[in-house]
């Protein structure tokens, strides 16, 4: 089977019906996508499938066929960080950072869909992602910096 990840086509094995998370990590060595719970409860494994943040741990790899998958590795363009990555780095938000890839992709989709977001909307939109270090207030205030401005 072939899948498209970060604008590249890959041939992958789907014997035993592996999850998209397993295929990304073990076959494509895209380990930025993390395992956190295996039941779509923590958001660590989220990737964008056709732009929608999707928990890759409960998504069969076969379900991603013919779709565009973006992982954390695919956000940087020609050495330029995505604005979400940039602001989270500038604001020095994370501690252990294990949640960061899932957080970032969720935020990217959240911001793609809306020009402006209130803090409450950010909280609602991000609530499916767990940061066990509890950096939540900093994530909200950092994202607010780029959602309260008009985006180009």
């Amino acid at each position: 089977m072939r899948i498209n990840v970060n604008d590249r086509e890959y041939a992958v094995e789907v014997d035993g019906n592996p999850s998209l998370l397993e295929v990304l990590r073990e076959q494509l060595d895209l380990t930025g996508t993390k395992y956190g719970c295996g039941e779509a409860a923590c958001g660590a494994c989220k990737v964008l499938i056709n732009g929608t943040p999707t928990p890759s741990c409960i998504t069969p790899a076969t379900a991603a066929q013919g779709k565009n998958i973006i992982t954390i590795e695919g956000l940087e363009k020609e050495g330029e960080l995505h604005p979400v990555q940039k602001v989270l780095m500038e604001e020095d938000v994370f501690q252990c950072s294990y949640c960061a890839p899932g957080m970032i992709l969720t935020a990217v989709a959240l911001l793609e869909n809306r020009q402006q977001l209130s803090e409450q909307e950010i909280i609602e939109g991000m609530n499916g992602n767990i940061c066990r270090c509890c950096t939540y207030p900093k994530i909200v205030s950092a994202l607010s910096k780029i959602t309260h401005k008009d985006k180009a």
Partner: peptide, 14 residues
């Protein structure tokens, strides 16, 4: 910091 927000850092599980 950049390695952590780009997914480059390898935790042991990676």
């Amino acid at each position: 910091g950049r390695d952590f927000i780009t997914g480059k850092h390898r935790y042991v599980s990676d």
